[in-house]
């Protein structure tokens, strides 16, 4: 039993880090703009597949990482500009969400057209070293993911104490008032989508480096995981990170102690439970801050 707990803990940490990064990227838009981007996973996976192609062509880890980040940002900003922005502020909250579904289908086909549906290998961008824990391993993606989370937390803490961060809060809480005060709300939205795309690409790259085989079919599951982590966390950035770790923990316990077939059921049970019992998410249990 002790060995199983060590294994479950290692799996929980491995998955939790990945889900936390994805959840924070998703929550950035949901928490700060109140917008749900269902093309999030497709943008991340497009970035992942492009970066895989760049690595196979160049073998350069730096170019691979840069390609992923660039595509992630561009795809996310394109979703904002062409799908969400034209529908924003028209009083229909569902229309922008549906528009992101359309954007997701376009991005998915952008992935499928050049890369096909076949799985392809993804390089060990963070090195091949792994710490064996029980009957599994903690690979370098855990360290990389934790570094990203800490970096994002530090950057957030720094930004929200400055003029630009306060502008974001103003746009979130009173968009009309913010515009009257001369705050460029549209630019704020674009920047937030760019950062969300960046985090999505980073999360996608971490997933790719962890599972080592990637394909376009990952996109919907990536959106689902990010959405679930964000909802469990109540939409705040810290909450989304917490939600990601909670989601990873639940999946790990289900997989290691019960059986893999229960993992998704338990994850969805967690999501439904939070929606029913704590509709504002888990964040209230640990924090009252949105950031």
């Amino acid at each position: 039993m002790g060995g199983s707990l060590v294994t479950a803990g290692a799996v929980a940490l491995s998955l939790g880090v990945l889900y936390a990064v994805l959840g924070v990227g998703f929550a950035l838009l949901y928490g700060l703009l109140g917008e749900v981007n269902l093309a999030f996973g497709d943008a991340a996976v497009l970035a992942l597949l492009v970066s895989a192609a760049v690595f196979s062509a160049t073998g350069s880890v730096i170019l691979t990482a840069l390609a992923a980040l660039a595509v992630g940002v561009l795809a996310s900003v394109a979703v904002e500009r062409f799908a969400v922005a034209p529908l924003r502020g028209r009083g229909n909250t569902l229309a922008p969400i549906i528009a992101t579904v359309g954007a997701a289908l376009i991005l998915r086909n952008l992935s499928l057209t050049p890369f096909g549906a076949e799985d392809r290998s993804y390089p060990q961008l963070f090195g091949s070293g792994a710490l064996v824990a029980g009957t599994t391993s903690l690979d370098a993606t855990v360290i990389a993911g934790l570094s990203v989370l800490l970096g994002a937390a530090a950057a957030g803490a720094w930004a929200f104490r400055r003029r630009w961060g306060r502008a974001v809060i103003a746009v979130r809480d009173a968009p009309v008032g913010a515009r009257l005060l001369g705050i460029p709300a549209a630019r704020v939205s674009v920047v937030l989508y760019a950062i969300a795309g960046l985090l999505g690409a980073v999360g996608g790259v971490l997933v790719g480096a962890h599972v080592r085989t990637v394909g376009a079919e990952l996109s919907w599951r990536t959106t689902l995981l990010a959405f679930t982590a964000a909802i469990i966390g109540g939409g705040s950035l810290r909450g989304a990170a917490l939600g990601g770790f909670a989601l990873g923990g639940v999946e790990a316990v289900a997989q290691v102690l019960l059986g893999s077939i229960w993992a998704e059921a338990f994850a969805l049970l967690l999501l439904v439970s939070v929606i029913l019992l704590r509709p504002r998410g888990l964040r209230r249990a640990l924090t009252t801050s949105r950031t």
């Binding site: 799996v11 997989q255 059986g259």
Partner: peptide, 20 residues
């Protein structure tokens, strides 16, 4: 015997259980 969802790349947990 470990049963997983077809196409699921999230294999770490059930593979670890099988190896145990």
């Amino acid at each position: 015997t470990e049963t997983y969802t077809l196409g699921d790349k999230n294999t770490q947990g059930f593979v670890a259980k099988a190896l145990a």
